[in-house]
Protein backbone atom coordinates (compact mmCIF):
# COMPACT_ATOMS: atom_id res chain seq x y z
CA UNK A 1 0.00 0.00 0.00
CA UNK A 2 1.46 3.37 -1.00
CA UNK A 3 2.25 5.43 2.07
CA UNK A 4 4.85 8.13 2.34
CA UNK A 5 7.84 5.88 1.71
CA UNK A 6 9.67 5.46 -1.54
CA UNK A 7 9.15 2.23 -3.47
CA UNK A 8 10.19 1.01 -6.90
CA UNK A 9 7.10 2.43 -8.62
CA UNK A 10 7.88 5.85 -7.26
CA UNK A 11 11.48 5.68 -8.39
CA UNK A 12 10.24 4.74 -11.87
CA UNK A 13 8.00 7.81 -11.79
CA UNK A 14 10.80 10.19 -10.89
CA UNK A 15 13.23 8.76 -13.41
CA UNK A 16 12.15 10.33 -16.74
CA UNK A 17 12.07 13.88 -15.37
CA UNK A 18 15.45 13.43 -13.70
CA UNK A 19 17.05 11.92 -16.80
CA UNK A 20 15.82 14.66 -19.15
CA UNK A 21 16.59 17.51 -16.80
CA UNK A 22 19.96 16.04 -15.89
CA UNK A 23 21.14 15.21 -19.39
CA UNK A 24 19.89 18.31 -21.22
CA UNK A 25 20.05 21.01 -18.54
CA UNK A 26 22.11 20.32 -15.41
CA UNK A 27 25.01 18.41 -16.96
CA UNK A 28 25.37 20.86 -19.89
CA UNK A 29 25.49 23.76 -17.47
CA UNK A 30 28.30 22.13 -15.53
CA UNK A 31 30.09 21.18 -18.76
CA UNK A 32 29.93 24.85 -19.80
CA UNK A 33 32.17 25.66 -16.84
CA UNK A 34 34.73 23.16 -18.16
CA UNK A 35 34.42 24.47 -21.73
CA UNK A 36 35.14 27.98 -20.50
CA UNK A 37 38.72 26.81 -19.92
CA UNK A 38 39.22 25.45 -23.43
CA UNK A 39 40.67 26.87 -26.58
CA UNK A 40 38.42 25.01 -29.01
CA UNK A 41 36.45 25.55 -32.20
CA UNK A 42 34.01 22.73 -31.46
CA UNK A 43 35.71 20.36 -33.90
CA UNK A 44 39.27 19.13 -33.82
CA UNK A 45 41.69 19.25 -30.95
CA UNK A 46 40.74 21.13 -27.80
CA UNK A 47 43.41 22.77 -25.71
CA UNK A 48 43.13 23.49 -21.98
CA UNK A 49 44.03 27.11 -21.35
CA UNK A 50 42.76 27.53 -17.79
CA UNK A 51 41.47 30.98 -17.00
CA UNK A 52 42.84 32.57 -20.17
CA UNK A 53 39.36 32.98 -21.71
CA UNK A 54 38.13 34.62 -18.54
CA UNK A 55 41.08 36.99 -18.41
CA UNK A 56 40.56 37.74 -22.09
CA UNK A 57 36.86 38.41 -21.72
CA UNK A 58 37.41 40.97 -19.02
CA UNK A 59 40.59 42.58 -20.31
CA UNK A 60 39.35 43.45 -23.80
CA UNK A 61 36.18 44.85 -22.28
CA UNK A 62 33.81 43.10 -24.68
CA UNK A 63 32.19 40.88 -22.06
CA UNK A 64 31.95 43.78 -19.62
CA UNK A 65 30.31 45.82 -22.35
CA UNK A 66 27.66 43.13 -22.98
CA UNK A 67 27.18 42.73 -19.24
CA UNK A 68 26.56 46.44 -18.91
CA UNK A 69 24.19 46.45 -21.90
CA UNK A 70 22.23 43.58 -20.36
CA UNK A 71 21.82 45.51 -17.12
CA UNK A 72 20.89 48.63 -19.09
CA UNK A 73 18.26 46.64 -20.99
CA UNK A 74 16.90 45.26 -17.71
CA UNK A 75 16.50 48.77 -16.32
CA UNK A 76 14.89 50.10 -19.51
CA UNK A 77 12.51 47.14 -19.68
CA UNK A 78 11.49 47.62 -16.09
CA UNK A 79 10.87 51.34 -16.60
CA UNK A 80 8.93 50.88 -19.84
CA UNK A 81 6.87 47.92 -18.68
CA UNK A 82 6.19 48.00 -14.98
CA UNK A 83 4.40 51.32 -14.32
CA UNK A 84 2.43 51.09 -17.57
CA UNK A 85 1.41 47.47 -16.91
CA UNK A 86 0.30 48.37 -13.40
CA UNK A 87 -2.00 51.14 -14.54
CA UNK A 88 -3.34 49.05 -17.43
CA UNK A 89 -3.89 46.11 -15.09
CA UNK A 90 -5.92 48.28 -12.73
CA UNK A 91 -7.84 49.57 -15.74
CA UNK A 92 -8.59 46.03 -16.92
CA UNK A 93 -9.63 44.97 -13.43
CA UNK A 94 -12.61 47.33 -13.60
CA UNK A 95 -16.00 45.73 -14.10
CA UNK A 96 -17.10 47.97 -16.99
CA UNK A 97 -17.89 46.05 -20.13
CA UNK A 98 -15.64 48.05 -22.46
CA UNK A 99 -12.66 47.36 -20.20
CA UNK A 100 -13.20 43.64 -20.57
CA UNK A 101 -13.29 44.03 -24.36
CA UNK A 102 -10.10 46.10 -24.29
CA UNK A 103 -8.46 43.41 -22.18
CA UNK A 104 -9.29 40.74 -24.74
CA UNK A 105 -7.64 42.80 -27.48
CA UNK A 106 -4.59 43.79 -25.38
CA UNK A 107 -3.68 40.10 -25.17
CA UNK A 108 -3.18 39.54 -28.91
CA UNK A 109 0.57 40.37 -29.17
CA UNK A 110 1.23 37.43 -26.81
CA UNK A 111 0.13 35.07 -29.59
CA UNK A 112 3.11 35.99 -31.76
CA UNK A 113 6.66 34.73 -31.39
CA UNK A 114 9.44 37.21 -30.63
CA UNK A 115 10.76 36.48 -34.09
CA UNK A 116 7.45 37.40 -35.74
CA UNK A 117 7.21 40.58 -33.67
CA UNK A 118 10.81 41.47 -34.43
CA UNK A 119 10.34 41.11 -38.19
CA UNK A 120 7.15 43.17 -38.12
CA UNK A 121 8.67 46.00 -36.13
CA UNK A 122 11.79 46.11 -38.26
CA UNK A 123 9.49 46.82 -41.22
CA UNK A 124 7.45 49.36 -39.28
CA UNK A 125 10.67 51.18 -38.37
CA UNK A 126 12.29 50.83 -41.79
CA UNK A 127 13.62 54.26 -42.85
CA UNK A 128 12.59 53.90 -46.50
CA UNK A 129 9.20 52.24 -46.69
CA UNK A 130 8.39 51.88 -42.99
CA UNK A 131 5.06 52.77 -41.45
CA UNK A 132 6.40 55.12 -38.79
CA UNK A 133 8.58 57.29 -40.98
CA UNK A 134 6.02 57.64 -43.78
CA UNK A 135 3.38 58.48 -41.20
CA UNK A 136 5.63 61.13 -39.63
CA UNK A 137 6.45 62.51 -43.08
CA UNK A 138 2.76 62.74 -43.98
CA UNK A 139 2.13 64.59 -40.73
CA UNK A 140 5.13 66.83 -41.34
CA UNK A 141 6.98 65.79 -38.19
CA UNK A 142 10.76 65.43 -38.30
CA UNK A 143 12.73 64.51 -41.41
CA UNK A 144 10.66 61.41 -42.13
CA UNK A 145 13.66 59.18 -42.71
CA UNK A 146 14.95 58.50 -39.22
CA UNK A 147 16.81 55.19 -39.07
CA UNK A 148 15.45 54.10 -35.69
CA UNK A 149 17.31 50.81 -35.43
CA UNK A 150 20.45 51.95 -37.24
CA UNK A 151 21.18 54.79 -34.84
CA UNK A 152 23.43 53.47 -32.12
CA UNK A 153 22.35 56.10 -29.64
CA UNK A 154 18.71 55.08 -29.66
CA UNK A 155 18.79 51.45 -30.87
CA UNK A 156 18.67 50.05 -27.33
CA UNK A 157 15.72 52.30 -26.41
CA UNK A 158 13.86 51.19 -29.49
CA UNK A 159 14.54 47.52 -28.74
CA UNK A 160 13.30 47.99 -25.17
CA UNK A 161 10.15 49.67 -26.51
CA UNK A 162 9.45 46.77 -28.87
CA UNK A 163 9.95 44.34 -25.96
CA UNK A 164 7.51 46.46 -23.95
CA UNK A 165 4.94 46.22 -26.75
CA UNK A 166 5.30 42.45 -26.60
CA UNK A 167 5.26 41.93 -22.82
CA UNK A 168 3.15 44.72 -21.32
CA UNK A 169 0.08 42.57 -22.10
CA UNK A 170 1.47 39.76 -19.97
CA UNK A 171 2.46 41.95 -17.05
CA UNK A 172 -0.81 43.84 -17.10
CA UNK A 173 -2.63 40.50 -16.82
CA UNK A 174 -0.64 39.88 -13.64
CA UNK A 175 -1.72 43.26 -12.29
CA UNK A 176 -5.30 42.68 -13.34
CA UNK A 177 -5.32 39.51 -11.24
CA UNK A 178 -3.70 41.31 -8.33
CA UNK A 179 -6.05 44.29 -8.49
CA UNK A 180 -9.13 42.06 -8.56
CA UNK A 181 -8.14 40.56 -5.22
CA UNK A 182 -8.13 43.87 -3.41
CA UNK A 183 -11.23 43.87 -1.17
CA UNK A 184 -13.94 46.24 -2.41
CA UNK A 185 -14.58 47.35 1.17
CA UNK A 186 -11.25 49.20 1.28
CA UNK A 187 -12.40 51.44 -1.58
CA UNK A 188 -15.84 51.94 -0.11
CA UNK A 189 -14.32 53.06 3.19
CA UNK A 190 -11.99 55.43 1.38
CA UNK A 191 -14.86 56.89 -0.65
CA UNK A 192 -16.83 57.52 2.52
CA UNK A 193 -13.84 59.41 3.85
CA UNK A 194 -13.95 61.53 0.72
CA UNK A 195 -10.85 60.17 -0.98
CA UNK A 196 -10.44 60.91 -4.68
CA UNK A 197 -9.78 58.00 -7.05
CA UNK A 198 -6.19 59.22 -7.40
CA UNK A 199 -5.75 59.08 -3.64
CA UNK A 200 -7.37 55.68 -3.52
CA UNK A 201 -4.89 54.50 -6.14
CA UNK A 202 -1.85 55.67 -4.20
CA UNK A 203 -3.01 54.71 -0.71
CA UNK A 204 -4.92 51.48 -1.40
CA UNK A 205 -4.19 50.01 -4.82
CA UNK A 206 -0.43 50.53 -4.87
CA UNK A 207 0.33 49.12 -1.38
CA UNK A 208 -2.05 46.20 -1.97
CA UNK A 209 -0.23 45.31 -5.18
CA UNK A 210 3.12 45.02 -3.42
CA UNK A 211 3.52 41.30 -4.10
CA UNK A 212 2.42 41.59 -7.70
CA UNK A 213 4.99 44.34 -8.22
CA UNK A 214 7.68 42.03 -6.88
CA UNK A 215 6.54 39.15 -9.09
CA UNK A 216 6.38 41.31 -12.20
CA UNK A 217 9.81 42.78 -11.46
CA UNK A 218 11.43 39.37 -11.10
CA UNK A 219 9.75 38.10 -14.27
CA UNK A 220 10.84 41.16 -16.25
CA UNK A 221 14.43 40.75 -15.04
CA UNK A 222 14.41 37.02 -15.81
CA UNK A 223 12.94 37.58 -19.26
CA UNK A 224 15.34 40.35 -20.18
CA UNK A 225 18.38 38.34 -19.12
CA UNK A 226 17.83 35.90 -21.96
CA UNK A 227 16.42 38.29 -24.47
CA UNK A 228 17.85 36.95 -27.69
CA UNK A 229 15.28 36.09 -30.37
CA UNK A 230 14.02 39.60 -30.98
CA UNK A 231 17.45 41.23 -30.88
CA UNK A 232 18.78 38.57 -33.27
CA UNK A 233 16.10 39.49 -35.80
CA UNK A 234 15.89 43.24 -35.28
CA UNK A 235 19.48 44.42 -34.87
CA UNK A 236 21.65 41.30 -34.64
CA UNK A 237 23.52 43.05 -31.84
CA UNK A 238 24.18 46.18 -33.88
CA UNK A 239 24.61 48.84 -34.97
CA UNK A 240 28.23 48.19 -34.04
CA UNK A 241 27.75 46.48 -30.71
CA UNK A 242 25.09 48.85 -29.39
CA UNK A 243 22.60 46.06 -28.57
CA UNK A 244 25.08 43.21 -28.02
CA UNK A 245 23.62 41.86 -24.77
CA UNK A 246 25.12 38.80 -23.06
CA UNK A 247 22.94 36.23 -24.82
CA UNK A 248 23.71 37.76 -28.22
CA UNK A 249 27.42 37.94 -27.44
CA UNK A 250 27.42 34.29 -26.35
CA UNK A 251 25.73 33.20 -29.57
CA UNK A 252 28.16 35.10 -31.78
CA UNK A 253 31.25 33.90 -29.95
CA UNK A 254 30.24 30.25 -29.98
CA UNK A 255 28.32 29.83 -33.22
CA UNK A 256 29.64 32.54 -35.55
CA UNK A 257 33.26 32.94 -34.45
CA UNK A 258 33.40 29.26 -33.38
CA UNK A 259 35.16 30.16 -30.16
CA UNK A 260 33.60 27.68 -27.73
CA UNK A 261 35.76 28.83 -24.81
CA UNK A 262 34.86 32.51 -25.05
CA UNK A 263 31.19 31.69 -25.61
CA UNK A 264 31.17 29.43 -22.55
CA UNK A 265 32.59 32.18 -20.37
CA UNK A 266 29.51 34.26 -21.17
CA UNK A 267 27.23 31.24 -20.75
CA UNK A 268 28.59 30.75 -17.23
CA UNK A 269 27.98 34.42 -16.42
CA UNK A 270 24.40 33.97 -17.66
CA UNK A 271 23.98 30.84 -15.55
CA UNK A 272 25.20 32.71 -12.47
CA UNK A 273 22.63 35.43 -13.13
CA UNK A 274 19.93 32.80 -13.61
CA UNK A 275 20.87 31.06 -10.38
CA UNK A 276 20.68 34.35 -8.52
CA UNK A 277 17.25 35.12 -9.95
CA UNK A 278 15.95 31.61 -9.19
CA UNK A 279 17.01 31.93 -5.57
CA UNK A 280 15.43 35.38 -5.46
CA UNK A 281 12.16 33.94 -6.78
CA UNK A 282 12.18 31.15 -4.19
CA UNK A 283 13.05 33.53 -1.35
CA UNK A 284 10.35 35.99 -2.30
CA UNK A 285 7.63 33.46 -2.89
CA UNK A 286 8.49 30.65 -0.50
CA UNK A 287 7.58 28.24 -3.30
CA UNK A 288 9.89 25.54 -2.05
CA UNK A 289 8.31 25.36 1.40
CA UNK A 290 6.57 22.07 1.84
CA UNK A 291 3.27 23.42 3.14
CA UNK A 292 0.48 24.32 0.82
CA UNK A 293 0.40 28.08 0.40
CA UNK A 294 -1.13 30.03 -2.39
CA UNK A 295 -1.21 33.65 -1.31
CA UNK A 296 1.36 36.24 -2.10
CA UNK A 297 1.94 35.48 -5.74
Amino acid sequence: MPGTRMNWQRWVMTLPAIVFFGVFAIVPMCVAVYYSGLNWSGIGQAQWVGLANWANAFSNGEALHSLWLTIELMILCWLFQNPLSLVLGVFMAGKQRHRAVYGVIYFIPLLFSSVAIGITWSYILDPEFGLLDSLLKALGIGNGSENWLGNQHIAMFVVALIIAWQFVPFNSLLYQGGARQIPESLYEAAMLDGATPIQAFFFITLPQLKYTIITATVLILTGTLTYFDLIYVVTNGGPGDATQVLAMDMYKQAFTKLNIGAGSVIAVILAAFGLLLSILILRLTGFNKMESQMEGV
Binding site: A32, Y35, V218, T226, A267, G274
Partner: peptide, 17 residues
Protein backbone atom coordinates in the same frame (compact mmCIF):
# COMPACT_ATOMS: atom_id res chain seq x y z
CA UNK B 1 14.59 21.53 -10.26
CA UNK B 2 13.47 24.77 -8.62
CA UNK B 3 16.92 26.28 -9.00
CA UNK B 4 16.42 25.71 -12.73
CA UNK B 5 13.37 27.99 -12.65
CA UNK B 6 15.12 31.07 -14.03
CA UNK B 7 17.93 29.18 -15.74
CA UNK B 8 18.40 30.61 -19.21
CA UNK B 9 18.54 28.17 -22.13
CA UNK B 10 21.50 30.21 -23.33
CA UNK B 11 23.56 29.03 -20.37
CA UNK B 12 23.43 25.44 -21.61
CA UNK B 13 23.07 25.81 -25.37
CA UNK B 14 26.74 25.28 -26.28
CA UNK B 15 27.11 21.89 -24.54
CA UNK B 16 23.59 20.91 -25.63
CA UNK B 17 24.58 21.60 -29.23
Amino acid sequence: FLVGLAMPIQAAIIPVY
